[in-house]
Structures are given as C-alpha cells and as structure tokens.
Amino acid sequence: MKLTIPTWLTLLRIVLIPVLVMVFYLPYKWTNFASAAVFILAAVTDWLDGWIARRYHQYSAFGAFLDPVADKLMVAVALFLIVQGHPTPWMAFWASVIVGREIAVSALREWMAELGQRATVKVATIGKIKTVAQMVAVSCLLYSINPKYPLHPGTDIWLGEWIFHLGDWLLAIAAVLTLLSGVQYLHAAWPALRDDEKAAATRASEEKRKHG
C-alpha cells in the first residue's frame, strides 16, 4: 500500500491527538495557547490534505477511510477535554449532541455503503458550515480553558473571557447545525432504507413459504 502525502497528513493528525491531551494537562499557564495551536494545526492539515488530494489527484481508498476517522477522533477528544476543563451541563450537552450525531451518521454511512448507495449521504452545505463553526468554537474554547488555571473575571489570558463566550455560542450553533445536517442525511437515506426493509420483508416471506 502506497502512502500519499494527504494520507501522511492524516496520520499526522492522528498522532497529534495524544499530543493535544498531554499539552492540555501540563501544569503551566501557557498550555491553553499550546492546546489551541495543536488543534488549529490539525485543522490546517485537514484542509491541506484535501486540497493536495484534489489538486494532484492523490486519492487512495485507505486515505478516504482514514480522513473522516481522524477528524472525528480529534474533535471528540478535544470536546472531552473542554467538558473536563469547564464541566457545565450545557457544555456537556452540546458536546454529547455533536459526538452522538457523528456516531449515528457514521453508522448510517456504513449501512448505506453496504447497500451500494454511499453517495446518497454525501456531505451537504449545512454540514460544511457546521464543520467551520465547530472548528472555530473548539479552537476558541481550548484557547480560553486551562484546567490548572481556571478562567475567571480579570484573567490575564489575552481576551480569554471574550473568546470563551464566542466559542461557547459557536459550539451551541454547531450543535444545532449538527442536528439539522443529521436530519438531512437521514431524509436523503430514508428511501433506500425503506426499500431495503421491504426487500428484507419480501425475502423473509418467501423463505417462510418455502419452509412452511
């Protein structure tokens, strides 16, 4: 199996996940800057590997499989860190919505792939907007949350409190868009799922007649 440049960038994104966790828990005041920087670097590699793949036609089946896995792992781990660093009910709720939707849509895509209709659940425009809002929100929250030095009024983190509120609102918006895009995916896949269910019922009925 030949590894292309986009695939190497995707693998780098996976390697950055434990780096993000380690940096987040370092007992220093600058770890919030470093955490945000690691996540932003991962987001840049996500954009860059897609651009290189399209520009130079460096596509691979392994890369197509690994890219969304790397994205979801990075976002999920970052959200877990944010909730641990700022454990409020709303923060946990928005994070649960985003991670839960990703699991559900991944399962839906796998099912559609088995039916030979994976293209039916391709990324929609609202999903792209959600991704941008989510990436900016997570970057802002990682920047403004430090588990060793919690955010408080009068913080010496540059614009930390303002950026925290921006990230908080953007995460809520991303969670709402996540639900809407999930409904879109389900609506697009529903005819194929319904037809598959009817076909399964027909096969079961025929089997019952044969052995009845």
Rank of each mutant, 00 (worst) to 15 (best):
L3F: 15
P6G: 08
L9G: 05
T10G: 04
R13W: 05
V15L: 15
I17F: 15
P18W: 12
V21R: 02
V23W: 00
L26T: 07
P27W: 07
T31D: 05
A34L: 15
S35K: 01
S35E: 04
A37N: 10
A37G: 07
I40C: 14
T45K: 02
L48D: 02
G50Y: 12
W51F: 11
I52V: 07
Q58H: 07
Y59F: 13
A61G: 10
F62T: 15
G63W: 01
A64E: 08
D67Q: 02
D67W: 00
A70G: 13
K72F: 14
A76R: 03
A76C: 08
V77N: 00
A78T: 03
F80N: 05
V83T: 03
Q84I: 03
H86T: 00
P87S: 04
T88C: 01
T88S: 11
P89L: 06
F93E: 12
W94F: 07
S96Y: 14
I98M: 06
G100E: 06
A104M: 10
A104S: 12
A104N: 07
E110S: 04
W111I: 06
M112I: 10
M112P: 01
A113K: 07
E114T: 12
L115F: 11
L115C: 11
R118S: 12
V121C: 13
V121A: 15
T125R: 07
K128W: 09
T131H: 02
A133G: 13
M135A: 03
M135V: 10
M135D: 04
M135T: 09
V138D: 00
S139M: 02
L142R: 02
Y143I: 05
S144L: 03
S144K: 02
L151K: 05
L151S: 07
H152A: 15
G154V: 15
D156A: 12
I157C: 06
W158Q: 15
G160E: 01
G160F: 01
F164H: 00
G167Y: 00
D168C: 12
L170M: 07
I173F: 05
I173Y: 09
A174E: 04
A175L: 09
V176C: 12
L177A: 13
T178E: 05
T178F: 00
S181E: 01
S181K: 03
S181Y: 00
Q184R: 10
H187N: 12
A188M: 10
A188E: 12
A189H: 04
W190L: 14
A192W: 04
L193N: 07
R194T: 15
D195Y: 05
D195V: 05
D196F: 02
D196H: 03
D196A: 15
E197A: 14
A199Y: 02
A200P: 12
A200E: 15
A204F: 12
E207T: 09
R209F: 06
H211M: 07
H211G: 06
G212V: 13
